[in-house]
């Protein structure tokens, strides 16, 4: 009984507060990350030599350095050169750049899988390169990239918990504070686990729905 009261009075309000911050972190990071990923992925396949090189370096850097190190750099490092970011901004920036690097890899793979004949056909019709990519390649490529990108979005939900390392108190941060005050680690973190599980499940359903919705006639999955 006492446990239930603690759950209702202490844990849930704190976690809901944290959940709100988490969602505020995840949504813009997911959106920006995806945009960066599409842009960088497309540049890595269809960009000029210089653009391709820059994009490759970006991916090598942001995929190669641990996310915590990146977050620390944005939040604790940048003030040394006179740039001050709020914990929230530093987190969204870090998540977007990191997730963009991973997305770009899924997008690149998907773009490469589009048959070359369709590019030839678009060129033969007089499409400019930019329009060919925007109108013929990306709509097909992104459909194929969706399962991979969805995976990255799910992953983002979970690594958003790192924001508390740069003092942006989201779901995990709230739990950490609550647990260290009450010493009820098991109850608190069990509840946090359930929160993340629900978040991920909802995202998973949405992605699945999107995938079904975007399936082209004649390309239905063979089940």
């Amino acid at each position: 009984m006492e446990e239930l009261l603690f759950l209702q009075r202490e844990i849930l309000p704190a976690l809901f507060k944290g959940l709100k911050v988490s969602i505020l972190l995840i949504v813009p990071s997911a959106f920006c990350g995806l945009c960066i990923g599409i842009l960088v992925g497309a540049l890595r396949v269809y960009g000029g030599a210089a653009a391709r090189r820059i994009a490759d370096i970006y991916v090598a850097l942001f995929r190669g350095v641990p996310l915590v190190v990146q977050l620390f750099t944005w939040y604790f490092g940048l003030p040394h050169v006179g740039i001050y970011l709020s914990p929230f901004t530093a987190s969204v920036l870090g998540f977007s750049l990191c997730s963009g690097a991973y997305h770009s890899e899924y997008v690149r793979g998907a773009l490469l899988s589009i048959k070359k004949g369709q590019l030839l056909a678009a060129q033969a019709l007089g499409f400019t390169k930019l329009r060919m990519v925007m109108i013929v390649i990306l709509p097909q490529g992104l459909r194929r990239a969706l399962p991979g990108c969805g995976n990255e979005l799910i992953y983002l939900i979970k690594y958003s918990s790192l924001a508390y390392m740069v003092t942006c108190i989201e779901l995990t941060g709230e739990a950490k504070i609550l647990a260290s005050h009450s010493f009820k680690y098991l109850e608190v973190f069990f509840a946090v686990g359930v929160f993340y599980l629900v978040l991920v499940s909802v995202a998973g359903r949405l992605l699945h729905y999107l995938e079904e919705h975007l399936t082209l006639p004649g390309f239905e999955h063979h089940r």
């Binding site: 048959k115 004949g117 369709q118 030839l120 056909a121 678009a122 060129q123 033969a124 019709l125 007089g126 013929v136 709509p139 097909q140 459909r143 082209l216 390309f219």
Partner: peptide, 18 residues
């Protein structure tokens, strides 16, 4: 502009699948 004036038909059609 030139390509718009020269139509091309391919062996394997190359329709846009989407």
């Amino acid at each position: 502009r030139y390509r718009q004036q020269v139509g091309m038909i391919f062996q394997d059609f190359n329709l846009f699948d989407h």
